[in-house]
Amino acid sequence: MKVIFLKDVKGMGKKGEIKNVADGYANNFLFKQGLAIEATPANLKALE
């Protein structure tokens, strides 16, 4: 799943980066902790 990092995550990515991560990792950790959001077309447009 493609995500946009909202904060730096050690060993994974930096704020503003777009990366592919495992679905479970994104849903169970990154999204719940507020560290990333899904890289949807609307979210990608908002990032620009």
Rank of each mutant, 00 (worst) to 15 (best):
M1F: 10
M1D: 01
M1C: 11
K2M: 14
K2R: 14
K2Y: 14
V3A: 01
V3H: 00
V3C: 02
I4G: 00
I4P: 00
F5E: 00
F5V: 01
F5H: 00
F5G: 01
L6G: 00
L6C: 09
L6M: 09
K7H: 12
D8M: 03
V9A: 03
V9Y: 04
V9M: 04
V9K: 03
K10E: 13
K10A: 13
G11T: 04
G11Q: 05
G11F: 08
G11K: 06
G11P: 04
M12F: 14
M12L: 11
M12D: 04
M12G: 07
M12T: 07
G13S: 03
G13W: 10
G13N: 01
K14Y: 14
K14M: 12
K15R: 12
K15M: 10
G16V: 00
G16T: 02
G16Y: 10
G16A: 03
G16M: 06
E17C: 07
E17L: 04
E17W: 05
I18C: 07
I18L: 08
I18D: 02
I18G: 01
I18W: 04
K19V: 12
K19A: 10
K19I: 11
N20A: 13
V21L: 06
V21Q: 01
V21W: 03
V21C: 10
A22G: 11
A22D: 14
A22M: 11
A22W: 10
D23E: 14
D23K: 15
D23T: 15
G24S: 12
Y25R: 06
Y25M: 11
A26C: 07
A26D: 05
A26P: 04
A26M: 08
A26H: 05
A26Q: 05
N27D: 07
N27Y: 15
N28A: 14
N28W: 12
N28Y: 12
F29P: 02
F29R: 07
L30G: 01
L30S: 01
L30A: 01
L30C: 01
L30K: 01
F31T: 03
F31W: 03
F31C: 04
F31Q: 02
F31S: 02
K32I: 11
K32Q: 09
K32F: 07
K32T: 11
Q33N: 14
Q33S: 11
Q33L: 15
Q33H: 15
Q33R: 15
Q33P: 01
G34Q: 08
G34H: 11
G34P: 01
G34F: 09
L35K: 04
L35G: 02
L35T: 04
A36N: 00
A36P: 00
A36W: 02
A36T: 01
I37R: 05
I37H: 03
E38Y: 06
E38F: 05
E38Q: 10
E38R: 10
A39C: 09
A39K: 01
A39W: 11
A39T: 02
T40L: 05
T40H: 04
T40G: 03
T40K: 02
T40D: 04
P41D: 11
P41L: 12
P41S: 10
P41R: 08
P41M: 11
A42C: 12
A42M: 09
A42H: 11
N43Q: 05
N43C: 08
N43D: 05
L44P: 02
L44F: 03
K45T: 08
K45R: 14
K45A: 14
K45C: 13
K45E: 11
A46Y: 11
A46T: 10
A46P: 05
A46N: 12
A46L: 13
A46I: 14
L47E: 07
E48M: 12
E48T: 14
E48G: 12
E48L: 13
